[in-house]
Amino acid sequence: MSTTAARPGAGVVQVTGELIATRRVGAYHHLTFVAPGLAEHARPGQFVAVAVGGPTSANLLRRCFSIHRVSPSGTYGGTVDVVVAAHGPGTQWLTDLRAHDEVDIVGPLGRPFPLPKEPVPTILVGGGYGSAPLFWLAETLRERGCRVEMVLGAATESRLFGVVEARRCADGVTVTTDDGSLGHRGWVSDVLPELIRSTGAGVVYACGPMGMLRSVTEVATAEGAVAQVAVEESMACGVGVCMTCVMPVRGNDGVTRMVRSCVEGPIFRGDRVRWESFENGYCTVPADALGAPKEGGH
């Protein structure tokens, strides 16, 4: 176990993390790593970038996961928990790890969820295992006196994450599944308007697929609430140097820029994201974005 890089004051560490627990949770894997120095800096909404396949791996790009939980001290020292869905060679490698295997972890990265200054009612929306960072956020919000409602949605029951945990750390929980295998049949956006109205929520936090984040933003905006969304863009580095995880976001000055979701995000105000640019798996650069391609492209 070693901290291989941590410049004083950087607020981030690169550590060799030992896996101490791995268990299946529905369609996902919940992994706990010993990661000295990481937990102390972490806030809900931040993420870790994990190298996969060992030092000679042919899969060079780091896999990024939002932090499910951290524990600054315990039997093993500081730990970090992430939730992984095995859908490619890198995530498969991670879910095949056994206890005491070691993984290179960089974190915490990105900006955390902004917390309200006043104890306003809040709603936390998680799509699939996008709910992973929300339980820690719920506890943090409740410590500040905020009422917390959670909405967990997925295609089917096995793809929900944390329903039991949600009941423990939220004031109320609503579950939706596309196929009706648990909770309401339908989407999270079906139940959201009424929930915002009945709770008087001022902030809706959401984490999950882009389409869901867009509809949560639309519903929240229509109901007069602020949406804070954690985006899932694919990243190569997670630390701000590869420029692959960009998306069009309007700044305080009203100008749209292609910003890096790893350093400027992953949390954005939903009404600042140019959702109309995302279509069919592509994101195009809005014509009014700073430095957008002229006629004929770059």
């Binding site: 060079l60 863009e233 694919s234 420029m243 960009v246 820029r257 592509y282 650069v285 700073l290 430095g291």
Partner: peptide, 17 residues
């Protein structure tokens, strides 16, 4: 100033990208 291209901008390939 240049915005660069839209996404996806990246694909992992064997021992590279």
């Amino acid at each position: 100033p240049r915005s660069g291209r839209g996404t996806p901008r990246m694909a992992e390939t064997p021992s590279g990208m």
